[in-house]
Amino acid sequence: MHGGLLLQVAGQLEPDGNRAELFGTIFEVFLVLGTAVGVVVIGYMLYNAYRYRDDGTAPAEETEDIGRPTLGELPEGGGHGRKLLLSFTLSAIIVISLILWTYWALLYVEAGAAQPAEPEMEDGTTVDVTGYQFGWQFEYPNGNTTDGTMYVPEGERVRIVVTSSDVMHNFGIPAFKTKTDAIPGQTTSTWFGPVEDGEYTIKCYELCGAGHSYMTGTVEVIDAEEYERMFVEPMNSTNASDGGTERVDPATAAGGSSAPSVGLPADGGVATRLPARTAATEGVLRA
């Protein structure tokens, strides 16, 4: 019954497997097995509870030497030891093999996260993410930054390197089943994709203060070439209107559909300043 699923997962372990699908498959196997075990065990409990209920009549076995506990005895164990060890071994085998099986998936996920942050990575890109109370800032290979909206190239894998500039946060994109802690003073990394065109929500999964519930963001998947031009190639007049401006509008610059604001490093260096807390979250802070 699970053979199909297992094969399916093995297929997912191919290097360009997608994390969301990987999660989906493993989760499904766990659900099926977990439900089965739960039903069997609890069913068995209920059956025995009913079967051995005290209905007032002494059961036939009572004539056997049942050995009921008596008041003031020194505690000792009852029989059925063999049965106990048997079921224990069985359950241990299920649990251990289940987890071992997922270990290969873990190695795969970890390998993706550990890849070096090479901007010219053949198929994929790296975005640096910084969480702050209460929003997200993104920095791309060419030093451009955006706030609140993360742009990623369609059809490619995206590696993210996450940190925080104040308290702990947790950066998660539920649709891609990706999530990692944002820890001040440290970085963590993970990955997702390849992803399809569209807009997805970013959520914070670690309590970080009064604005935590509102600490969301958006992932916008854009055309790979457009992404290349905006966020990978070094800044020049094609992707920045002029060296002096701090913000550029890809809608006009590259003919995209939306109008995000992109912060450019004024001196071509890396933009590190974080935007001040926005007014919207300022109100929440003191609420």
Partner: peptide, 26 residues
């Protein structure tokens, strides 16, 4: 005991690190 069994089974999900990556914080 029934509740604990359900809690234990769902704990195994969390023990599988790949799943925990997604289930954590939820």
């Amino acid at each position: 005991l029934v509740l604990f069994i359900l809690g234990g089974i769902t704990g195994v999900f969390l023990g599988a690190v790949v799943l925990d990556y997604t289930l954590r914080g939820t």
